[in-house]
Write a protein that binds this DNA or RNA. Sequence first.
DNA 1: CGTTGCGGCCAAATCGATTTGCGAAGGAAC
DNA 2: GTTCCTTCGCAAATCGATTTGGCCGCAACG
Lengths: 342, 342
Amino acid sequence: MAMESQARPSADGPRVTIADVAAHAGVSPTTVSHVLSGKRLVGAATRDRVERAVRELGYRPNIVARNLRTRRSQVIAVIVPDITNPFYAVVTRGLADAVDAAGYATYVCNTDAKFDREQKFLEDVLDRGVDGVVLASVDVSQEHLDEPNRYGTPLVCLGDSHDLPGVDRVVPDDEDGSRIATAHLVARGASRIAMITGPPGAAAARVRGYRQALETAGRTFDPGLVHEGGWTRQGGREAMKALMSSAPHPDAVFCANDLMAIGAMDTVRELGLTVPDDVAVVGFDDVEAATLVTPTLTTVTNPAYDAGRYAGKLLVERMSGGYAEGRRTVVLPCRLVPRQSA
Amino acid sequence: MAMESQARPSADGPRVTIADVAAHAGVSPTTVSHVLSGKRLVGAATRDRVERAVRELGYRPNIVARNLRTRRSQVIAVIVPDITNPFYAVVTRGLADAVDAAGYATYVCNTDAKFDREQKFLEDVLDRGVDGVVLASVDVSQEHLDEPNRYGTPLVCLGDSHDLPGVDRVVPDDEDGSRIATAHLVARGASRIAMITGPPGAAAARVRGYRQALETAGRTFDPGLVHEGGWTRQGGREAMKALMSSAPHPDAVFCANDLMAIGAMDTVRELGLTVPDDVAVVGFDDVEAATLVTPTLTTVTNPAYDAGRYAGKLLVERMSGGYAEGRRTVVLPCRLVPRQSA
DNA sequence: CGTTGCGGCCAAATCGATTTGCGAAGGAAC
DNA sequence: GTTCCTTCGCAAATCGATTTGGCCGCAACG
């Protein structure tokens, strides 16, 4: 077997184009293109010559040129508040895995939950000609979401959002998850069940679920037992302090996310009480940290990976023209994960 | 002030091109381009007309076409084992922040630490015409790294790697960090200091630092006190079990990353012993989880964000032609973060 | 023998911008 | 009045692929 030397054009050497291949194989660029794409039949002998020329010259198609002509880039964008947040990292991973299988690459944009950055990135990726966008917006209810329509680019939203035609959604079943979590505390025998929520307006479904579970159990919903924690550990710590200062302090608390739940546990410990005996704690999301704290945190899964994967699926369907009807909504179930804290 | 109606071409409507703008303003496409890029002077009156036409038509330049012509895409790629790993998420974030300021967007590729996937993505992003690549390879010592030279695309490596001309590196000072960590255990009065390492061959510098600190302190390096933990919590747990079964068990352990350190603490607790009184534990990386476990984990920072940021800086310099000399190496210092576990 | 059909290939248009070279107009200097 | 710059704008080439329409030759078929 003869050593076949692959040409490795140096950096400065001119790039080898489809025309070079054509010349080397003694055919036209058209034919080379057809061999490569298989869009039209090419005689076996010719095909062989072309394929050899491709190999010998080390030809690689210029994807940018292809994108220009075909008006498709095989790239999607995902816009998240912060890739450093494990939840969004996992979403992104699920998404990447789903679209990767269909040959799409993935852009990532961090908005820091700022509206203007979100807007800017949305325009940017559309101008860059991505084939689809996944938007994990915290700050919903924005009207700029019709931008994608400008180029007819499919958009999938994660979490709640306005009702736009043609914009698919993937949402966790927040309400049901919260119901389960609260019901778990009821079943455990807790009598005063508090809740620590996100910022006002956000994730209202989690509050609804909490309320429903209480009412189903014949309890009354007491607004004095609900405090805001701003999604953070520190916020959870402070909200819990406030809650614990009420006369008969709560003996259980449901937190709208795990970080706040961890903060709440901090407070309980600081007060010299123990979890779950004095106060039971349940979180939401099931981030990895939930298994790291002591006691380990009982929580409800927020299926991040699946959310990403479904978003990818919906997007791929729309991008490939497999689906062009009205908006679809995928609701993902949330599961209770009982651990030590409740 | 008259209501200025911005044209919003619908999805099916033809895209508005630079030629449309030119026609609408009564000038040539050339002039429009010059107005937009500022590459040549254009008369004030003409410029105004063009700018109005741009606004009225809602013109947005086709970036793909621009990329084809200019041979630059304003996109960089980052290739990491897994974005879900907080360390790489933070690196990616630092990188994105650094290059975002210079107008670059960021691709993310997950290799799962598989060599063939790394290879595939590297080729893919180069074909896609990215302007630069950051490679966070776990499996170093690969020869395919000269691929970027094919198109003269700058490459920055994170962590150790082969010595390639023109490939910049950003590395944490693993050796020094490990020395500090081990010295801390020595200073605490530990007499038998064990170590849990990564897979064989990986992060050898951390073992060197451990060994140096011991020898500096007049101790002898005992290979029997070194076990492999495979980077994972479970691996750390098992390695610790093995170490604890030796006759006088170690009273301190330095782990090559935080996850394994957390696993080691699991084992200590399972044996009914306490950290740090019976066994002191020090980790490496300072991931967020280090502050979540109890006792909180004493560890050494692995400056992920800075590593990403520096990588971005080096890349931007090369991409903008600001630097074209030989390879550079940025070594980032690691700092001890004393907490409860040692 | 004409003609329909088809396999196999090519020429040329196209995607939408950037960029170079050139020419016209206007003003200043001699 | 000529020369010589500037300033301003345009025509056309270019980036590198894809894709359409058509041409040519050969076989099958009536």
